[in-house]
């Protein structure tokens, strides 16, 4: 398997601040592909094209309730259903790094790929009339002009809690692979066989199990700390054998 770049999003850490949303919008509206339009941004019924959204879900019922912030963007599926349906070849998956992209010069805006994405990751650009979606900042991660530490998607750099990891999930030693393996990374809607490259890390609680007998010292403290109530013991006791 060749390289597959992906994001790993840690739901245990995400605080739902939308920094990734705004940095994504900022980066991608300033690129050579043209602006990501907003319609009536300050009007009554604003609308806009975004590549990334942070949603909020409530798990359980009060008082046993937990809020989960859930960033959602294109998952760069390893078996993307949105690609084969495209009649023009505008939607494609790159061989070299597994990024799923749209060629904005070929797209006819038929929206078929958006129908064929179960995650709703694609949005039509209402001005350019072509399909757009997360590019994993392909115009940034290979930019030789940037310091190596900044050759990452804008959302990853912006995240104040480091909830977003970026890397090659096919490389078993990468940060993302280790996180998926060791922190229980999972895919969304596995039932459709899309094999999303982006993974999510679940909520994790740190718990240790303490049994009651562990709260009471089993060996006698008297041996060390005081005079034995029955005077010195002459014979060897079991404690002498085991307690060191």
């Amino acid at each position: 398997m060749s390289k597959q770049l992906a994001l790993v999003i840690d739901l245990n850490v995400c605080v739902g601040c939308h920094a990734c949303v705004t940095s994504c919008k900022e980066w991608n509206t300033s690129g050579s592909a043209g602006a990501l339009p907003d319609e009536r941004p300050y009007g009554k019924d604003p609308s806009g094209t975004f590549f990334n959204r942070v949603q909020t879900f409530e798990i359980g019922e009060f008082p046993n309730v937990e809020t989960v912030h859930f960033p959602k963007s294109c998952l760069h599926c390893e078996d993307p259903p949105c690609v084969p349906v495209c009649p023009t070849g505008a939607s494609y998956k790159r061989e070299e790094d597994g990024i799923v992209l749209v060629d904005y010069d070929k797209c006819i805006g038929c929206e078929y790929c958006a129908w064929a994405c179960p995650y709703g990751a694609r949005e039509i650009d209402t001005r350019q009339k072509v399909m757009k979606k997360c590019t994993l900042c392909v115009d940034r991660i290979y930019d030789q002009e940037l310091p190596v530490s900044e050759r990452k998607p804008a959302c990853v750099l912006a995240c104040p809690t480091s909830a977003r990891l970026f890397g090659d999930i096919q490389d078993p030693d990468s940060e993302v692979s280790v996180a998926i393996r060791e922190e229980g990374g999972y895919q969304l809607m596995p039932e459709w066989g899309t094999n999303p490259a982006n993974h999510y890390l679940p909520r994790r609680k740190q718990r240790i199990t303490i049994h009651e007998d562990e709260l009471i010292r089993a060996d006698s403290p008297l041996k060390k700390e005081g005079v034995h109530p029955h005077g010195p013991v002459k014979d060897v006791t079991l404690d002498d054998v085991t307690s060191w």
Binding site: H18, G48, R53, T56, I59, E61
Partner: peptide, 16 residues
């Protein structure tokens, strides 16, 4: 979890 409720879709305006 049996009960998962969405509290926000991430934007108040409409979208595609």
């Amino acid at each position: 979890h049996r009960k998962i409720t969405q509290r926000s879709m991430g934007h108040t305006g409409g979208s595609f």
